[in-house]
Design a protein around this nucleic acid. Structure first.
Lengths: 196, 196
DNA sequence: GACACTATCTTTACAGTGTAAAGTTTGAGT
DNA sequence: ACTCAAACTTTACACTGTAAAGATAGTGTC
């Protein structure tokens, strides 16, 4: 037997359920995402997921963990592809942020939903992927001199700006959906002074 | 008979359902909000709401419409209470924005949820209250000279910033929840030049 | 004032959901 | 070869939204 298509025990059900969940999420949205539908799509009965996840909430957290993973990957990739000066690094990172939000609408809404956030502190996978995403943003903001007023640096402002823009763009399709350069950074980026 | 407690026909069921929905939303969250629970709380059977709303989605839209109403009220009130210079007017408006998001967490998430947004274009009440809220922000941003780059003025940037900050604060309780002045405006507000 | 009528709410029914418990199969270890 | 535990199925139940049909009240109209 290869690793695929193990006959009865299915073998790797856990990741299959997560992937099926993501698929359904993007095709049918959050409303159409049911435990039973996920199970059926994978080819098992509706009670099978219970042996891998404590409940639907736990499966959603696992899906969100995977979501944060590709989220962070996309940010990192876009940042690394950008010119090496701090301004463009930050801009690239944020374009990755927006790209993920635009291409995975329901998943983006899920990973930042307050439903899963309470359970998220328990799940180790989730904490790790989420923290990686946040640290990525922190690190890129750390390329600039921090504000004298905020000890935390600029990450809250930048994060708010890009997150709000991504959310509103998803909510109100009127805002130009394609042009990542339309991001309202022209007042802020020039105010950030690179370190050293 | 007074207007209250009409015996069998209940009289004003429609607004009662909306209010009960808001109450449950704030006490039990989105997950605990069911049509049947709303109906029971108001004192009618579970099928009664069907005669006033086309379905659960329609009731949610009505709840969101009411939500946008108090949202706009709160922004307007805070803006009017602020000093009359443009900077403080905008700051006041945004503090109202944040106050609403902090005090009505689930409702805030609902009115900006992508679930109801498709149905929202149909509902006239919703369009009106939502547009009022948006226009309020537009008008206050119009106190400043627009950016030469964006014909739309600054409302997208300001809106993104305050909306992102509100969302992230709800998501991650780590961000100081009380101090409205901690809003990351110190880089942006000085860049805005009042008109005339 | 009796009548029909319509809006409002109830009753009943049904498919879909998440979850729990018990039963069945499979694979691994001794 | 046998035991046993893990993986999955079967069955059952409470809860959800929705639809259809029945009961009740208030509103006209003659």
């Amino acid at each position: 037997m290869t690793s695929e298509n193990t006959p009865h025990h299915h073998g790797n059900l856990r990741p299959a359920l997560i992937q099926a969940g993501i698929d359904i999420l993007e095709t049918e949205g959050t409303k159409g995402l049911s435990l039973r539908k996920i199970a059926t799509r994978v080819g098992v009965t509706h009670a099978a997921p219970a042996h891998h996840f404590k409940g639907k909430a736990a499966l959603l957290v696992a899906i969100a963990a995977k979501g944060f993973q590709v989220f962070a990957d996309l940010m990192e990739k876009n940042r690394d592809a950008a010119p090496k000066d701090p301004q463009n690094q930050l801009l690239g990172l944020c374009q990755g942020y927006l790209q993920f939000a635009a291409e995975n609408e329901a998943l983006f809404e899920l990973i930042f939903s307050t439903d899963i956030k309470p359970h998220a502190n328990v799940d180790e996978d989730f904490r790790k992927s989420a923290n990686r995403a946040f640290r990525l943003l922190e690190d890129t903001c750390a390329l600039f001199e921090p504000s004298p007023k905020h000890s935390q640096g600029h990450e809250i402002m930048i994060w708010s700006l890009v997150h709000g823009y991504a959310s509103l763009r998803a909510y109100n399709k009127l805002i130009s959906p394609e042009d990542g350069a339309a991001m309202p950074f022209e007042l802020i980026l020039p105010q950030l002074t690179p370190k050293k």
